[in-house]
Design a protein around this nucleic acid. Structure first.
Lengths: 217, 217
DNA sequence: TAGATTGTTAATCGATTAACAATC
DNA sequence: TAGATTGTTAATCGATTAACAATC
């Protein structure tokens, strides 16, 4: 059995998501069972590491000499990552990015259900994207309270981020996925995940620098 | 002086970006100098950790009893993270997400210059977003070669991701920022940064779960 | 000088890797 | 049975934290 209530490190989380993606590919290629060794080798990762990561997430044990049933393994990891239990969310700020996220059908696969968008722009209010209504920001607080929503996606301009955050927190939101470049302040009992493009870009740039450096040697 | 050619861990990178954001806030609040201790306390992080992170990135040393000049510190960290040296990139797949990224002026602050977009859709080709032209995908390879571009942003549908990746690699691209949900295969000398919404969402969901659990106790 | 903070060195902690007995 | 893989325990490595001398 697994680390029943695992506060797993971020690194493990990242790798588990990577495993799921690769396992889906392997399943498509016709694999019925898969060993931790095979998965590790496919990803060029240490075998013990993959073994241990898997053991954090699984309910269905593997069999010596055979490995894991690929369906059960995918199911277990997805369940551990929370892809299976649907979570309702609101999205605030229906600009280009907000529209892109509202229109992205992939979220459903990961258990996120955006119930609707909110914007101050009159011209966009009352339109629909991907079958989801867009309401005026004035109705944000009451809607969140009424539907008991706990997750909000923040895609407003940076200047409005803090003001909207305050409204969200007041309405009972407990997790904010922040796509704005602004730093937002929240009480300790509200989780914030910054989708930080700057960091990703910096990481990518550094990798590129190392590759180009290696080449010129 | 700094760890002159620092292969710094991802964790350090993430924290340095966090420091910059907070330092900008502090500067706006009127700080002229700042100590590692003050910064650490403001972020509720360990003092030694912040001290060490900073020492990886800085050129301008701090002064005992005073701390660092806030302008120099921001400048040094930004430079270390590569925000200052402009990097040209192409963007492939000008859907909602692609448009959002092309229209996002914040990238300039981080040194990314999207020189243009590419799409197969005739109706969007030849339009402009944020002053940047959109060209047919057929011209992608020659444009990348001609302008010697090394970075590509991939925002196509998942199904096209691998085919486009192959073209990009052939044209000389060495770093791909992958916003598609697809797993793309590249040679070892091409860096890939997956912008994995699923992982972020999973992390946020877990934090939320822990908060709600704590509450019900 | 006394006090605070720097930069650096040592101690601790956690995550990764290796080793191995159990099992099909 | 022999061989491969599981699950687990021990060893290693790296990152975080604590301690401390140097300095303004």
């Amino acid at each position: 059995m697994a680390n029943s209530e695992g506060s797993v490190s971020l690194a493990v989380f990242n790798r588990l998501a990577l495993y799921v993606r690769r396992l889906r590919d392997m399943k498509a290629e016709g694999f019925v069972t898969v060993s931790s060794v095979a998965l590790a080798d496919a990803l060029s990762l240490n075998r013990s590491l993959v073994k241990k990561d898997i053991s954090c997430a699984i309910v269905n044990e593997g069999k010596p000499k055979v490995g894991y049933n690929i369906d059960e393994l995918i199911e277990d990891i997805e369940s551990f990552l929370g892809y299976n239990n649907t979570k309702d969310a609101v999205l605030v700020g229906v600009g280009k990015l907000g529209q892109a996220l509202m229109g992205y059908r992939g979220f459903e696969k990961y258990g996120l259900n955006i119930i609707g968008g909110f914007d101050i722009d009159e011209t966009i209010v009352s339109k629909e994207i991907n079958g989801k209504k867009i309401l005026p920001t004035g109705k944000l607080e009451s809607a969140v309270k009424k539907l008991n929503i706990k997750i909000a996606i923040l895609t407003t301009p940076g200047e409005q981020a803090q003001a909207i955050t305050d409204i969200l927190v007041k309405a009972g939101i407990r997790a904010i996925w922040n796509f704005t470049p602004a730093h937002i302040k929240t009480p300790d009992d509200v989780a914030v995940k910054n989708e930080d493009m700057a960091v990703s870009l910096a990481v990518l740039s550094q990798q590129l620098k190392e590759i180009l450096k290696k080449e010129s040697e």
